[in-house]
Design a binder for these strands. Structure first.
Lengths: 130, 130
DNA sequence: TATTTCATGCAACTCTGTTGCATTAATTAC
DNA sequence: GTAATTAATGCAACAGAGTTGCATGAAATA
């Protein structure tokens, strides 16, 4: 019998969830920290993000700069396997990373490879900066 | 008149180029350092990789771990714009990142976005570890 | 061979992300 | 409501990728 770790609702978690759900762009830990008004430590932010990630409330994408950014799940299809395989765009001018939830790359993984997580990132110039 | 910076051939550059061309997988700076037999400093490796990247000899992909890995250009199509938009697979067991040069994701970037570099990464379990 | 200019080594640094541990707070059972 | 349980937090310290400044060394060119 495996004991499931119970999910606890805390102030930090609610706060971070709200920051992400209000954001138009995917946010990194430092960006979240800026908007958190000192509600918690930066380590806590990392840990809350991990939990939200595992609980399926948010997804992440790694930018060309190697920084992980998080975004809440919106248009993703929870009924069909809960995939977050849409494209992300990283602007080289303003630095913002945007979820392009409607753009889902099509590909065929060769035999033998088992996919668990995808990160599709294109960097360039976004409409606002172009 | 803009003076082009001349391309110089050095021992470190040749060595690193050879390491990458012999590798079956995309390599990070620490991995290259391990195979470099102390031929040069780790900072030099970063700088050489930057040069090879700009000269179009190699391409890079950022893994889910946020680490940048480099691979030499082989099957990429130099005659048609020199794109390195193939898929990369990051194994969660052995940690290796492989170029799947034959798998090129198909997508349509929305109007207004200008692409300059792409990084398509799927993590999971590779055929050797599955 | 001398000159020019690029490449290298070294040290120090920045930044993202992680870990250990003692303390605090949310659940649960009573 | 209160005590017991266990997860969450804060803090400090750490790890590792990647960068920068500067003096030195080594290609390429004439």
């Amino acid at each position: 019998m495996v004991k499931e770790k119970q999910v606890r609702s805390t102030a930090a978690k609610q706060h971070i969830r709200e920051i992400l759900s209000k954001s138009e762009t995917a946010m990194s830990q430092p960006e979240i920290l800026e908007h958190s008004e000192g509600i918690c430590d930066r380590v806590t932010i990392y840990r809350v993000l991990d939990r939200l990630l595992h609980e399926g409330e948010i997804h992440r994408a790694v930018g060309m700069d190697g920084i992980t950014r998080y975004a809440s799940c919106r248009q993703c299809d929870h009924d069909h396997g809960h995939q977050h395989d849409h494209l992300h765009f990283s602007c080289e001018v303003c630095g913002e990373v945007t979820c392009l939830e409607k753009v889902v790359p099509v590909l065929k993984l060769p035999r033998g490879y088992q996919a668990r997580e995808a990160s599709y990132m294109i960097s360039g110039i976004c409409p606002d900066c172009g």
